[in-house]
Design a protein around this nucleic acid. Structure first.
Length: 269
DNA sequence: CTGAGATCCTGTCTGC
DNA sequence: TGCAGACAGGATCTCA
């Protein structure tokens, strides 16, 4: 998926619809990660969009009374299309129609979801989420406190959305490489110094990835069709048995919590 | 409470 | 070519 930088890139691409009127939402396939509620079509007709923003990996589209919440799951993406271009793609599950253009929700694996909520911050899927990684509250003392007493590997810990949001499988490996920390290390053994370094690394990586328009590996494109160029900057993710850009050792692939994990065992300890 | 593992779904790639 | 099996950017749920 779309991790935080990809979601942020998508939000920025559809930001131009702020202050536009959403004519209607058409759902073609309700069977996403969660069944799409009928409310999504009923209460969104001819509504002015006040604001489009992001919380964790959720795209939030604020209307008069309700807020549309969109999660892209593993393979979801939004696409801006001219209303005159009357084509469908396979796995186009929903359309958000405006005067001249529409936003199309396409999701091959259907792990994404669409909700309508009067107060998204109190929605069951959002209310228990952790802090934003790019906020000031994500700092070394916060991370040290979360790590304290945790038997989870540090990689699992930073990917757990109740601790800190937005860090997915790619950026977890990349951040740990930058911080020179072995992803298998137990969280409770991570020093305050390492916490400081890891926090900095996560912020650096995420900001830089946003700047590059996210990571396009297989099929992520921004809503305006542009590709993400962070793929070119990856140091370890997907570089199994290739040379470490830092020390020329071979990058190793391993599995942590059923997820592929890449590291340089020489640089990361 | 914590942590491990299965699970939802489709497409693509690898190896026999 | 065909086909089985592994794997893919997420995150919830169940169970021990």
């Amino acid at each position: 998926m779309p991790e935080l930088p990809e979601v942020e890139t998508t939000v920025r691409a559809i930001n131009k619809f702020e202050n536009s009127t959403l004519k209607e939402v058409i759902v073609h396939n309700k069977n996403l990660r969660w069944k799409v509620d009928k409310k999504v079509e009923i209460f969104t007709k001819n509504k002015l969009i006040h604001k489009i923003s992001r919380r964790a990996k959720y795209i939030l589209i604020y209307l008069d009374e309700y807020c549309l919440m969109i999660h892209l799951g593993m393979s979801g993406k939004l696409r801006i299309q001219n209303n005159n271009d009357n084509y469908f793609k396979k796995h186009d599950h929903a359309e958000f129609i405006f005067k001249d253009e529409k936003i199309v929700f396409n999701d091959t694996r259907r792990f994404g979801s669409i909700h309508l909520s009067k107060n998204p911050n109190k929605h069951r899927l959002i209310k228990n989420l952790g802090i934003e990684p790019l906020s000031n509250s994500f700092n070394k003392s916060y991370l040290a406190n979360v790590c304290k007493n945790s038997n989870l590997s540090i990689k699992k810990l930073i990917m757990d959305q109740k601790n800190v949001v937005g860090v997915g499988n790619i950026y977890a490996s990349e951040s740990l490489f930058l911080a020179k920390i072995n992803p298998k290390r137990l969280s409770k053994d991570i020093s305050i110094k390492d916490c400081e370094c890891l926090v900095k690394s996560i912020k650096t990586i995420l900001k830089y990835a946003i700047k590059k328009g996210g990571t396009t590996l297989k099929d992520f494109y921004s809503a305006d069709g542009s590709e993400g160029y962070f793929s070119l900057e990856l140091n370890v993710y997907g570089r199994d048995s290739m040379q470490c850009k830092n020390c020329n050792s071979k990058i190793v692939k391993t599995i942590i919590g059923q997820r592929a994990t890449y590291l340089c065992t020489n640089c990361q300890s």
